[in-house]
Write a protein that binds this DNA or RNA. Structure first.
Length: 421
RNA sequence: GGCGGGUUGCCCGAGUGGCCAAAGGGAGCAGACUGUAAAUCUGUCGGUGUAUGCCUACGCAGGUUCGAACCCUGCACCCGCCA
């Protein structure tokens, strides 16, 4: 077994850690129980969260026991964001999101065998906690001096945003989580993003004060693209893991469109391929970038992992059909319909002006935008550029008598079904 | 609780009575070039659609005015100092 710390380092997943030698030793001495928390701040996790989920998965594969924590309690409070105070979500909403987030994490872990994963919810040990208990039993171990020095808090204190007592207290809750998991499961390692470092260490300090034990923490770096911008967001927004929010097709396309210079980094961070395979793909990218072998490999692996092999296959086939060199009209009916099924879709009763079709399919946000797109030469019907703003598709444009493929720009596609029934 | 400062479009930020759908920058979008890449250059960037129109928008609600993002009143939230 390769040393997991070495592996994480090679993959660029190790930004910060507590005493590295001690951590290596602990991991080498036998299975370690490691936890990572996920707060339900939205109905779905997104690819940014995947870094953490996959890190847990890596630990489990290396023989350690992962605990997946969903923040039923911390999600009610809100981790201080640098940019703004969070809006509180209703308890019912958070409870609903907790379940959704839990079900998104579970497929990545194994719940059988000697190092079976366990899912936990921090609401379980906080819902019964009284304010007095919290202040006396937990609060006494926290020094405000240290709390305000933490970057997440300090940034807010130094900005004109300020910070509420609620968010200020967040680190106490997360610290308490670690203590609780240490007691219940003997958990001695917490992972998280480097922006969580303050919260990670809050737990370490608490455990040390309460029990005298020294436990570990490990932070993954903030993933940025080569141009310095944040990874995981795109024109159209966040890339979610939920197929309802980001279709498998869009998910696949996201990875496929990764920039050449980002691909090596992304493969290391996200892929479970071996070091040799990844280095081979890096070479291919360098020598034949236009083939985009690394992007394809990454996109297929991620889509398969998140949406399953079946969806992945369909989406790859659809992409090939829609972006192929051939004429769309030459595609046979089943290939075409299968491909179109992966796209944003609109159904209309009869042939409407292209402007309306663009707007209805969701490719553009308004008819104005649709007109603008046509004027700029960025609108296509069945891969043919639309030049007139008042263009209306002809009946003979319909593929197999029923479908139109709309395109905005180079890579935004939508399917329109024209049916009178 | 008192005093002062603030709240502008996706973000930052200018605008202190008409010339403001609102400068400038960033992001985004489209085009050219390409490889469904990057960089670069160009265009564009509230809605409706073509009407010197109408609607929506400068924290919220009222008011003054022929006319308000700009003035007045109240409210909400944020920041600072003092208590």
């Amino acid at each position: 077994m390769t040393d997991i710390v070495d592996e994480l380092k090679w993959r660029g997943l190790l930004a910060l850690s507590t005493d590295e030698d001690a951590l290596r030793k602990a991991l080498a001495d036998g299975p370690v129980t490691v936890y990572c928390g996920f707060d339900p701040t939205a109905p779905s996790l997104h690819i940014g969260n995947m870094v953490q989920i996959l890190t847990l998965r890596r630990f489990q594969r290396a023989g350690h026991r992962p605990l997946g924590l969903v923040g039923g309690a911390t999600g009610l409070v809100g981790d201080p964001k640098p940019t703004a105070e969070r809006a509180l979500n209703a308890p019912e909403t958070v409870a609903n999101w907790v379940e959704r987030v839990r079900s998104q994490i579970e497929p990545f872990l194994t719940f059988e065998g000697p190092n079976a994963a366990v899912m936990v919810n921090n609401l379980d040990w906080t819902s019964g906690l009284s304010a007095i208990e919290l202040l006396r039993d937990v609060g006494k171990h926290f020094r405000v001096n240290k709390m305000i020095a933490k970057e997440a808090v300090a940034r807010r204190l130094n900005s004109d945003l300020g910070i509420s007592y609620t968010e200020f207290s967040y680190q106490i809750l997360q610290g308490l989580d670690y203590l609780e998991l240490y007691r219940r499961y003997g958990c001695t390692l917490q992972t998280g993003g480097s922006d969580q470092w303050g919260n990670l260490t809050a737990g370490i300090d608490l455990i040390h004060r309460v029990t005298g034990a020294s436990v570990h923490a490990l932070a993954t770096p903030l993933i940025t693209k080569a141009d310095g911008t944040k990874f995981g967001k795109t024109e159209s927004g966040t890339i979610w893991l939920d197929a309802e929010l980001t279709t498998p097709y869009a998910f696949y396309q996201f990875w496929l469109n990764a920039e050449d210079r980002d691909v090596p980094t992304l493969l290391r961070i996200f892929s479970f391929r071996s070091r040799e395979e990844i280095e081979e793909l890096e070479t291919l990218t360098r020598e034949r970038p236009a083939a985009r072998a690394a992007q394809r490999a990454l996109a297929e692996e991620m889509t398969s992992l998140v949406h399953g092999a079946d969806h992945c296959e369909r989406v790859v086939a659809a992409s090939r059909a829609l972006f192929g060199q051939g004429d769309l009209a030459d595609l046979d009916r089943s290939t075409l319909t299968a491909a179109l099924a992966e796209l944003p879709y609109a159904k209309v009763g009869n042939l409407a002006p292209v402007v309306d079709l663009l707007a209805e399919s969701g490719l553009v946000s308004s008819k104005s935008a649709a007109r603008r797109t046509i004027k700029e030469g960025g609108a296509y019907v069945n891969n043919t550029k639309v030049t007139a703003e008042d263009a209306v598709p002809a009946p003979e444009d319909l593929l197999h008598g029923r479908w139109l493929v709309l395109r905005r720009g180079k890579k935004h596609l939508a399917a329109v079904e024209v049916a009178t029934d």
